[in-house]
Design a protein around this nucleic acid. Structure first.
Length: 580
DNA sequence: GCGGATCAC
DNA sequence: TATGGTGATCCGC
């Protein structure tokens, strides 16, 4: 007999319902829906992993509560009040920020392609749902939900494949329209973005509300897509407001300190961008459910600053955040990667083949986008859904498949971990170097660049309060010296929970490939091919990982559908602009 | 610098 | 039967 979900902790039932649950305010039958989801998940590997994570979080909360109950001091209330005054003094109501959000974007585009879908419960996606139509949402179907579960909630649910090229085209159209209102607008993915319409409203002598009405009706006229928007003095508030009158509505917050704080008072903490399910639970455990509760519990928060981040929460409570909107800059990018999920594999050769495929994909992306990098991070997910990463830094710039896959990198990171049963493998490259000069010069690859930050672009803007000048300085690795240099590799770390890491060395540990130091027993071990790995294998205790059993695996599953789309998500939606 | 975790889309 | 991919950030070590 299967156990029933009534045995599940409430936190687990909620967790299984997915991350987007708490987002859109839903009806009272949410608990029925959650029950169906929990029952459908029951017994799966996914479920067991969620249960484990839920248990760990519960433990962490117990620890935090213990700490709280041991507090002796009452907290420096005067200091907090002073901090609040200081923050309040920084409040800037001079800029009008808009956040817009296309209503159920993928689904809306699909209706345009196939009008017979209108009014029906359907969802876009394959194994996992990207977007559900509003009719489907009534049944509890939400993005991120496994399709088979959605079908349980709504048996008549229609599934539609992604039409990425359509999404891309429509997204471009919408973004282009928005640029008329703010040439420096910032897309935040394919279906949303931020604008600063202060200048536009002044130049056209219209109110913010009228401006956004105009924008929304223009978008509808030119694309037949509806968009919701929020208007507020900063990006955080604008984003929150864009949800207020969704779909096809807009909401403006009064540009008034008192009104803002009172707006925040009853706002669930989960609505704050950056506060997800885990933070929500942590905060709730000490009695904070709304942003108003932050003020109520400010004394506790001040004493547990480390755990909760007092200043950030005080800003949230006051509704203070950045009011700067700037287009994404190419140099903001910090990593590029590729990963793939497949039917669980235990066979070494088959796993290596997956790794090779991921390498090929990543090489192609890096070539197209013109990046190289110095650090490679391997990611793998066990059949049990547990995720691990292993990283290695090099002294030369990596971008080619052979380099990524080579024994020196991808394989060296992966092989010592085997044997395992894996359902996902991925690689990510960081410490990037831009192969484009960002000017429009020719396509010549600039291998020879001054190490200095000779960024030829300066961003000028009629500026809001704070403008962070982040000047990313390259790691002092001369690309010139590295061209064609033989691979010299730092040691790969394999710190398990237990392994204590010393390495008092400063500087980069650019060790030559003679011997490695075993990170566990600290002995020097020859790196003659497999001997180092063999040593580690016998040296490390890997029960934590080992639990994965071999498993007959058959049907090679096809890859992902999101990829082409999500790759154009935040910064890369062809929006790299340089002002002269 | 590495690895785990959280978050957004 | 069955639960995605890309990228950022923060913390602890």
């Amino acid at each position: 007999m299967e156990p029933t979900s009534s045995q599940d902790a409430p936190s687990l039932v909620k967790r299984l319902a997915g991350p987007s649950t708490g987002k859109a305010g839903l009806a009272q039958d949410q608990s029925d829906i959650n029950r169906v989801i929990a029952d459908a998940s029951k017994g799966s590997k996914f479920y067991e992993n969620e249960k484990k994570k839920d248990k760990e979080l519960t433990k962490k909360i117990d620890h935090i509560l213990l700490l709280r109950d041991k507090l002796t001091s009452e907290g420096d209330m005067q200091k907090i009040e002073a901090g609040l005054l200081k923050l309040e003094a920084q409040r800037d109501l001079s800029q009008t920020i808009v956040h817009f959000d296309l209503d159920s974007f993928f689904a809306s585009v699909e209706v345009l392609s196939d009008p017979t879908l209108a009014g029906k419960p359907f969802a876009v996606g394959h194994s996992v749902i990207s977007t559900a139509s509003y009719e489907a949402r009534k049944y509890g179907v939400r993005s991120g939900m496994a399709t088979f579960i959605a079908k349980k909630l709504c048996p008549q649910l229609l599934m539609v494949d992604h039409g990425f090229s359509n999404y891309s085209e429509m997204s471009d159209k919408v973004m282009a329209i928005c640029e008329r209102y703010d040439p420096e607008m910032r897309p935040g993915g394919c279906d949303e973005g931020y604008l600063n319409i202060t200048a536009y409203c002044a130049e056209h002598n219209i109110s913010a509300d009228a401006c956004v009405e105009h924008l929304r009706s223009t978008v509808y006229a030119e694309t037949k897509l509806t968009v919701s928007a929020g208007i507020a003095p900063n990006v955080m508030l604008a984003k929150i407001c864009s949800d207020r009158n969704k779909p096809n509505g807009q909401f403006q917050l009064p540009f008034d300190s008192e009104a803002i704080v009172s707006f925040m008072r009853d706002l669930p903490i989960r609505r704050i961008p950056g506060i997800g399910r885990v933070s929500e639970r942590l905060l709730e455990s000490i009695g904070i459910k709304t942003c108003g509760d932050i003020y109520t519990h400010r004394a506790t928060l001040s004493l547990m600053d480390k755990q909760f981040g007092l200043m950030h929460l005080l800003r949230v409570h006051l509704g203070i955040a950045s009011n700067s909107v700037q287009p994404p800059q190419r140099e903001e990018r910090k990593s590029i990667g590729a990963e793939r999920t497949f039917a669980p594999l235990g066979d070494k050769q088959k796993i290596l083949q997956k790794l090779e495929e991921v390498c090929a994909e990543l090489e192609s992306d890096m070539e197209q986008t013109q990046w190289m990098g110095r650090t490679v991070t391997l990611k793998y997910k066990l059949n049990s859904f547990e995720v691990f990463t292993r990283a290695k830094s090099c002294n030369r710039w990596i971008s080619k498949k052979e380099d990524l896959f080579a024994f020196q990198i991808g394989q060296e990171l992966l092989l010592p971990e085997l044997p395992l049963t894996i359902r996902l493998i991925g690689l990510r490259v960081t410490k990037l170097k831009d192969l484009r000069t960002s000017d429009t010069s020719t396509g010549i690859k600039r291998f020879f660049e001054p190490a200095g930050p000779s960024s030829p672009h300066k961003r000028r803007r009629v500026s809001p309060s704070h403008t962070e000048e982040s000047d990313s300085d390259e790691p002092e690795v001369s690309s010139l010296d590295d061209v064609g240099a033989p691979a010299s590799v730092s040691e790969s770390k394999r710190s398990k929970p237990t392994s204590s890491r010393k390495h008092t060395k400063e500087r980069q540990p650019s060790v030559e490939c003679e011997t490695h130091t075993c990170p566990v027993c600290e002995k020097k071990v020859s790196t003659e091919n497999d001997s180092f790995n063999a040593h580690l294998d016998s040296c490390l205790s890997r029960e934590a990982i080992r639990q994965a059993q071999a498993q007959a695996s058959a049907s090679p599953k096809q890859g992902n559908i999101w990829e082409r789309w999500t790759k154009m998500a935040p910064g890369s939606s062809k929006k790299s602009r340089t002002s002269k």
